[in-house]
Amino acid sequence: MSDLALSNPESHLYDYLKEEVSIRLTDRIFDIKRHFPTIVDLGCYKGQIADNLTDETVDRIICCSSSPNSLDKIEERRDLKIEKLLIDDEENFKLEANSVDLVISNLYLHWVNDLPKLFGNIISTLKEDGVFIGSMFGGQTLFELRCSLQMAEMEREGGFGLHVSPFITPQDIGGLLNRAGFTLLTIDADEIVVRYPSMFELMYDLKGMAENNALIRGRTHMNRDSLLAAAAIYNSIYGSDGSPKSEAVATNKPDGIPATFQIFYFIGWKPHPSQPKPLKPGSANFSLKDLAHLGKGNVNIKNE
């Protein structure tokens, strides 16, 4: 998380995406009909998760971040106990074993280099039957921007560089959670489309969100001609093609350009004997091959 972006007095103008996803992520906590005495918000940004929770769900929230500016922006609550924990690096996060009921992370894990290590530390910190809930940017995030930049650089320079950080797939998330020892996994996806006047406003907002490219081998400079060409390609393929506003309205095509943010939400549980177990192979009393015969009176069901 960039302290420089958080030190901007107008940083709140760029919080719209994280705030929206935090609301959707909090809804998934409310879907679990349980009271969590202690919650850890890992990579807490400005504490949007804490803002959405109530004392009906949680007693104590530990907001963890490696950014002092991030923790300074978290407001105290009368109804909830909020603790601020400054850590050296979220990648090395670890609290006392079996001490936390829920760990949640909102749009932060894509900055972590060693996710297997982090997930192992999280499951160690959780109590038995504790839960890990998070959101991450998916592989289709900003595909319009990536395609436009690549096409422009191929045309102008004969090759293209890395401008957007890589994103994760559902298979990656499931594999990492399984490897760490989580069970009863749930993964679902969502897409949020935000419209901007042009590609330049999108890039400006990404910088304000502290979500601009941080790859070590990523290109830090782009030629002016390539940048202007990318903006034209973006608008031509995905936007209103430069049409006057009246024409865009007549064709039901909104002004500006769209930017897609694909969000993956996941839930993983630390194993506990009380959790449901899968049935043993061969114990089913209904065969899938009989689905076509339902309602015809000739389906054989074993009674045990």
Score class of each variant (00 low, 15 high):
2 S>W: 11
2 S>N: 15
9 P>D: 09
12 H>L: 09
15 D>V: 00
15 D>E: 11
17 L>M: 05
19 E>K: 15
21 V>S: 02
24 R>P: 01
24 R>Q: 13
31 D>F: 10
41 D>Q: 03
55 D>N: 12
58 V>P: 00
63 C>V: 00
64 C>W: 08
68 P>N: 02
70 S>Y: 02
70 S>V: 09
71 L>E: 03
79 D>P: 00
81 K>N: 12
86 L>T: 06
90 E>R: 03
90 E>Q: 03
91 E>Y: 05
94 K>T: 06
98 N>V: 04
107 L>G: 05
108 Y>Q: 13
108 Y>C: 15
110 H>E: 13
120 G>I: 00
122 I>G: 04
123 I>E: 13
124 S>N: 10
126 L>E: 08
136 M>W: 04
139 G>V: 09
142 L>W: 05
148 S>M: 14
151 M>C: 06
152 A>H: 07
165 S>G: 09
166 P>Q: 10
167 F>M: 14
169 T>N: 03
171 Q>P: 00
173 I>R: 01
174 G>A: 15
177 L>Q: 10
184 L>H: 11
185 L>N: 02
187 I>S: 01
189 A>I: 09
192 I>G: 01
201 E>T: 07
206 L>T: 09
207 K>C: 08
208 G>P: 13
210 A>D: 00
224 R>E: 03
227 L>Y: 11
232 A>I: 04
235 N>S: 15
237 I>V: 15
239 G>E: 07
241 D>L: 04
241 D>S: 11
244 P>Y: 01
245 K>M: 11
247 E>H: 11
249 V>R: 14
255 D>W: 06
259 A>F: 12
261 F>W: 12
262 Q>S: 09
262 Q>G: 09
263 I>V: 13
264 F>L: 15
265 Y>M: 06
267 I>E: 02
269 W>V: 10
273 P>D: 02
273 P>A: 10
278 P>Q: 05
284 A>R: 12
288 L>Q: 07
294 L>D: 04
294 L>R: 07
295 G>A: 06
298 N>C: 13
298 N>P: 06
